[in-house]
Design a protein around this nucleic acid. Structure first.
Length: 904
DNA sequence: TAAGGAACGTAC
DNA sequence: GACGTACGTTCCTTAA
């Protein structure tokens, strides 16, 4: 495929789906899902795509929900029957197929597809073809805009409109207002049909002129016109297609991409579209046979990668960068750790296939003279530190952190292909560039391992031959750019996803970079003392255990424990692991210990101590950075499917807190001298979100009145005025269980009560909070219908297994569908809060810093004198970070201290 | 020797 | 089987 020409094809997806649904037989696929309309529209699209292979393209859908026309006129479309389920069920699959075909899909809330099409048509610079079955669109026709009904094959240019309606395009609005539309419930003038309307408009020239001369019209029609004169402006307003929307997408963005053959094949398969599947596979085979490669997309560019070694080349690339709206950047370094990495080279790309590599520190045998690192960085600095041009890349947090250590603050970080992929499908297991290149571009890039080797044979990047390294590095920048060009339009097609990407994930990226780089102070001596103490206690326990067992064994080996317990000592098997082995998990050991066995108790104690020592008190000191004396974690922004962050090296999100033993580790997380740590925790945030999502009045009231939620739940479930501690504990377990989609069995086990008793608690809970059950049913239903669930902010989580025939997998998907909107919305809320807090600190408290995030908690390090002021502001921002989208108040608890334990 | 799975345990 | 999301450690088997 060549570059798109300036033709633009806009398809009115909703109108076709509707027409196809009524025109075609009600087919279903093997699963009984309706497919008739789907087939019709896909067939139509195939034809259209074949007819217009070079044009820019978009398929536009009505967004569900009210539009401004409903505001204008409450009767608008009031008589229209609700969309049949069989039709609604075909919408999302259709959108998925179109997206997989590489065609942009647009859906803008609050307006109709017509308005989006009108606006895009008005902004187009070249010829526009609007494919629709809706006659109202005739008002958009002019010398540049043509209408096409692909189903009937009719094309309408201005002359065609005149022939068909008897009036020119510019009078179509007046015409429609006079005639009215029963299906949209637009009144019009009774007794006036197409012929009369056309006759009048031709005689008087316009509706306004006609209204002024209304007295002249004789007969019953004249009376009818005079009786409805006042309603006509409203009718005109209703039928007028808006051509001036503020859209986030422009005609030139609507570039067709190469199809995602894998996804497309899967969809064709699933919906029984054997003909399209066969065509797709035939296309693959043909491409493979003629040597162009099945996976090579038709728009794969010619690549021209350049290694820049001199001032002349640098100047030329600087010029290209300055003239670009956006460019792609990637650093090559000698370490994966952002705190240690030294820059070895810089790659840049401006257009697909055209990239440069600027080596600055290659030192292997035969390495050529290179530009000096500081000179290159100084030359790039003004561009890197400016908002414009925009920057794109893959995992830019890393590049941003490394550049910051060279004194360059990367600004204008607008697109990260890793995050684009994550927002599009957070359930994909990998978002690394090699996987994305293969999945979306059909390109197998050189891997780092292929270039540098691995294990003992690994060669530092700086010692790789500059030409080979240059191709690898330039390719990285190029691929990131091409991924962006492919993925970003897919985000633009879904306003919720675009919002999550551009208002949450991208702005969060620099915040995380700053947090990681600043790090958190850890008291190494304290941890070492704790390690010694733990070692001593472990040795004691170990010795007693060996005596008890009558032989020496490894207390850390579940296999050896299993042998001693269940084979030699004949203890009862309480539970089995998923692999069928007798389990030695904590709950089992507790049960055996409660039955009076000493050895299980000793093993439990040993496990607890060993966990603390190896994971925390031994490990954390090793991770203290030699230069900063602090620990610098990595937050991963594209890992957790629900939208949460994760943390590693070290994982700061699982530092113990529940037991006094474990909590001592938090004492080692300290503030710098003259500073304090502030903790700010969202209180019961997921339950509050559940109250919002379910709209359950009882639950909402409890939060609005600031009640102790577990106590309130206990009062309802146990019908008690006075709640005792045991009841509150049970209610707490119920509340947490609900968030995870728990079963009676699970609750029973948690509380140590029989299954049926747990079931009565759950039944009573749902009786008292009926909205919660309805919410859960809705979540499952939504997952089944659309294949995904959403957070309040519009983040999506796909749950394809909701249709699995395997009950276990299906039920797992159902629990995910229930949990993800709550966990994900909480993640959205705190991400927004982090962005707000970071902005506040940069602006007003530059000496205060965010240092940690633990899902519902932020930790800050603040100069002593500012602690109160910063704490108050942080609370205010956090409590407002839902932007009013959560209809239950959010509450934040603050703590201040010299260490993390004290601050709680 | 390295890689990877299983089992376990920490957090929210 | 049975309660969602992560990461890290240890043990231990398998592959090179």
């Amino acid at each position: 495929m060549t570059q798109p020409d300036d033709r633009l094809v806009l398809v009115d997806g909703s109108s076709y789906l509707y027409r196809a649904f009524h025109a075609l037989p009600a087919l279903t696929n093997a699963n009984g899902e309706p497919t008739g309309a789907l087939y019709g529209v896909v067939n139509m699209l195939h034809k259209l795509l074949a007819e217009e292979p070079e044009a820019r393209f978009a398929v536009v859908f009505d967004a569900p929900g009210k539009t401004f026309r409903d505001e204008l006129f409450e009767q608008y479309k009031a008589h229209r029957p609700p969309m049949p389920d069989e039709l609604r069920a075909q919408r999302e699959p259709l959108k998925a197929i179109i997206a997989a075909l590489g065609v942009p899909v647009l859906e803008v809330p609050g307006v109709e597809a017509d308005d989006v099409i009108g606006t895009l048509a008005a902004r187009a610079s070249g010829p526009v073809l609007i494919s629709t079955t809706d006659k109202d669109m005739a008002q958009l026709v002019d010398e540049q805009v043509t209408l096409l009904n692909t189903m009937s094959g009719t094309r309408l240019d201005p002359e065609g409109v005149r022939e068909k309606f008897g009036v020119p395009p510019e009078l179509i609005r007046d015409y429609l207002a006079l005639v009215g539309d029963t299906s949209d419930n637009i009144p019009g003038v009774p007794k006036v049909g197409p012929k009369t309307a056309a006759k009048w408009l031709n005689a008087y020239g316009s509706l306004d002129a006609l209204r002024e001369q209304a007295d002249e019209i004789r007969g019953k029609v004249g009376e009818s016109l005079r009786a409805h004169l006042d309603e006509l402006p409203l009718s005109v307003d209703l039928v007028t297609i808006r051509c001036d929307l503020a859209l986030e997408v422009a005609p030139e963005d609507l570039v067709r991409q190469s199809p995602d053959r894998e996804t497309l094949g899967g969809l064709y398969q699933r919906y029984g579209m054997r003909r399209f599947l066969a065509e797709l596979q035939a296309g693959d085979a043909a491409a493979a046979a003629d040597g162009t490669g099945a996976s090579l997309p038709p728009n794969a560019p010619e690549v021209a990668y350049e290694v820049v070694l001199d001032d002349h080349g640098l100047a030329a690339w600087m010029e290209r960068l300055r003239n670009a709206d956006a460019f792609s950047i990637d650093l090559e370094t000698n370490s994966l750790n952002y705190m240690d990495a030294e820059i070895v080279g810089v790659s840049l790309a401006v257009e697909p296939g055209q990239a440069a590599y600027l080596p600055v520190a290659h030192c292997g045998p035969g390495a050529p003279d290179q530009l000096d690192r500081d000179r290159v960085l100084d030359a790039l600095r003004p561009l890197l530190e400016a908002e414009q041009p925009e920057k794109m890349g893959q995992n830019l947090k890393y590049d941003m952190s490394v550049l910051a250590r060279y004194g360059i603050e990367l600004r204008g970080v607008a697109y990260d292909s890793m995050l684009e992929s994550y927002v599009l499908d957070s359930t994909a297991t990998r978002h690394d560039m090699d996987s994305l290149a293969s999945k979306y571009l059909g390109v197998e890039v050189t891997s780092y391992e292929q270039l540098c080797g691995k294990g003992v044979r690994q060669v530092p990047f700086a010692e790789i031959d500059v030409e080979r390294a240059g191709h690898y590095a330039a390719e990285d920048a190029d691929i990131a750019l091409r991924l962006h060009q492919l993925l970003y339009p897919r985000l633009q097609a879904e306003s919720g996803l675009l919002r999550v990407f551009s208002q949450l994930e991208m702005p969060l990226l620099p915040v995380l970079s700053r947090m990681e780089r600043h790090g958190v102070r850890v008291d190494c001596d304290l941890l070492e003392r704790q390690s010694e103490e733990l070692a001593g206690r472990m040795a004691e326990v170990e010795q007693r255990a060996h005596e008890e067992a009558g032989e020496a064994f490894n207390l850390g080996s579940p296999k050896q424990i299993q042998e001693i317990f269940f084979e030699r000592m004949g203890l009862p098997v309480i539970q089995r692991t998923p692999k069928g082995q007798p389990s030695t998990a904590e709950s089992v050991l507790e049960e055996l210990s409660a039955r009076g066995h000493e050895l299980p108790r000793l093993i439990l104690e040993h496990r607890g101590l060993s966990k603390l020592k190896s994971t925390y008190t031994d490990k954390l000191p090793q991770l203290i950075h030699r230069d900063t004396g602090r620990v610098h974690t990595s937050y991963h922004q594209a890992v957790a499917a629900t939208g949460r962050l994760s943390s590693s090296d070290p994982n700061l999100q699982n530092i113990p807190v529940r037991t006094p033993e474990g909590r001592r580790i938090r004492k080692a997380f300290v503030a710098s001298p003259g500073h304090r740590l502030i903790t700010a925790d969202y209180s019961q945030v997921e339950l509050r979100i559940m109250a919002h999502l379910s709209g359950d009045e009882g639950l909402r009231r409890a939060f609005e009145q600031g009640e102790d939620i577990h106590r309130a739940t206990a009062a309802e479930v146990f019908a008690a005025d006075e709640v005792n501690d045991e009841q509150r504990r049970a209610a707490k377990a119920i509340n947490f269980g609900l968030i995870y989609g728990m079963s009676a069995w699970g609750l029973g086990r948690q509380l140590g009560i029989p299954r049926d008793e747990a079931q009565t608690y759950i039944d009573r809970y749902f009786e008292r909070y009926p909205g919660v059950r309805a919410f859960m049913d809705r979540a499952r239903e939504q997952a089944r219908e659309q294949g995904y669930v959403e957070t309040v902010f519009g983040r999506r989580l796909h749950v394809p297994e909701i249709h699995s025939r395997n009950r276990q997998r299906r039920e797992y998907a159902e629990r995910t569908a229930i949990n993800a909107p709550m966990q994900g919305t909480a993640a959205d809320v705190i991400k927004r809060a982090m962005i707000d807090v970071d902005a506040l600190l940069n602006e007003r408290f530059p000496e205060s810093r965010l240092v940690m995030q633990v899902h519902d908690e932020l930790v800050l390090e603040v100069p002593e004198a500012q602690a109160t002021a910063v704490g108050d502001e942080v609370r205010r921002l956090m409590e407002g970070s839902d932007r009013g989208m959560v209809s239950v108040p959010l509450e934040v608890e603050l703590g201040v201290g010299d260490d993390w334990e004290q601050a709680h």
